[in-house]
Write a protein that binds this DNA or RNA. Structure first.
Lengths: 211, 211
DNA sequence: CCGCATCCTCATGGATACTG
DNA sequence: CAGTATCCATGAGGATGCGG
């Protein structure tokens, strides 16, 4: 752990725990699913292996992450503790805040379709419940993310292989633009190709813009 | 600005902007009110003056902070841009998350009563509207923070000098414990001394715990 | 292979002194 | 008052080693 701010302030103490470089990105990965060391290394392009080991130790000592044995035999697996999982709220807040930085497109940055799971979830949070449930796949960069809409809310995850009501194909900025438009943050640029039941897509994305 | 993560991911891009050491604490100070350079230096114990200058330049270039002339004559003043002010949501999220770190008390850390403004605001957010409006002062460490409750919500700020319906005196962990208890996060430890109209205090703090 | 630990270099942070 | 300039300590990043 890096030097503490030494301030009796909630924000300072939170940052003492998760403010170090890479920490919140590790949490991002684990918010999607528990993961092995190698998976974290792959999902965090640019991280040095010694830093990842250091940070995992810090986060474990702080009670954010727990190291445990994976279901399959003897492999080590990392997962968030209940308190660590509560970081979803501030993390999604930061993701919503970053929308203006994202609609500009990826530039030369690394990209993984799984990184759309949290943003879509964050941007669709609070969206008006759909009249009927549907599952729409979003094809981007060769991978498939699914958005499941029910009366009780919206749930975003990697495609689990089950049937989809429709598939939307677009690149990442367009997908985020679509979701942002639902919140009336920005307009959509680029094109989207829809396969299957277009009405199901509308169920997810075409609810009335908020505020 | 420190090295970019180089990831096309909302969280990574947000942290490219505000993830560097001290950045979010500077935002914390400016969320309370615009401030002069010297006020920031005083409100951020431990920061080196060159770092503060660097960070203010970075945040200005990123569009989070703006440098402007203060009302009184020719002095320079720093304030959040509208986009920067939207960091209130994730910052308050981190403050809520840090409650378990705060109820343990200050230890040897620096403390300023003004740092209670954001936590109280964050913890009281969403609290049931009071039946009547009242303003309760919270005296802590010689300073006074006021909590104004109206039908439209709760507002926390440093005391503006106007009349108070009551004054609660307690140390910081007790104050935060009180606020946390409203959200049923934790129990209150320690003692509180109330001066004035005790019913007004109840208006603020004794609404039914949530969830 | 996986799960780290070690080593080395260099950019960044921190403390202090100094200047317009 | 509002920052620069300087110096040193520390942490990040990359390569590589190594036991299981």
């Amino acid at each position: 752990m890096s030097r503490s701010y030494g301030q009796y302030c909630g924000l300072a103490r939170a940052l003492d725990v998760v403010g170090d470089r890479w920490n919140l990105l590790i949490v991002r990965q684990l918010l999607m699913a528990p993961a092995r060391y190698r998976e974290l290394l792959d999902g965090l392009p640019g991280v040095a292996t010694n830093l990842l080991a250091d940070r995992l130790r810090d986060l474990e000592a702080a009670g954010v992450v727990e190291r445990r044995l994976a279901e399959q035999g003897n492999a080590v697996e990392y997962a968030l503790t209940p308190w660590g999982a509560e970081l979803r709220e501030p993390v999604e807040g930061l993701i919503r805040w970053s929308t203006p930085l994202m609609v500009r497109g990826p530039g030369g940055d690394h990209f993984r379709a799984e990184w759309l799971v949290l943003p879509l979830s964050a941007l669709l949070t609070g969206k008006a419940a759909a009249r009927r449930s549907s599952t729409v796949g979003i094809g981007v960069d060769g991978a498939l993310v699914q958005v499941r809409t029910t009366r009780s809310g919206t749930e975003v995850s990697p495609h689990d292989g089950r049937d989809l009501d429709a598939v939307v194909r677009a690149d990442a900025p367009v997908v985020l633009g679509l979701a942002a438009r639902v919140l009336a943050l920005d307009d959509v640029r680029g094109s989207v190709h829809i396969e299957g039941d277009e009405a199901a897509v509308r169920t997810v994305f075409d609810s009335p813009p908020r505020s």
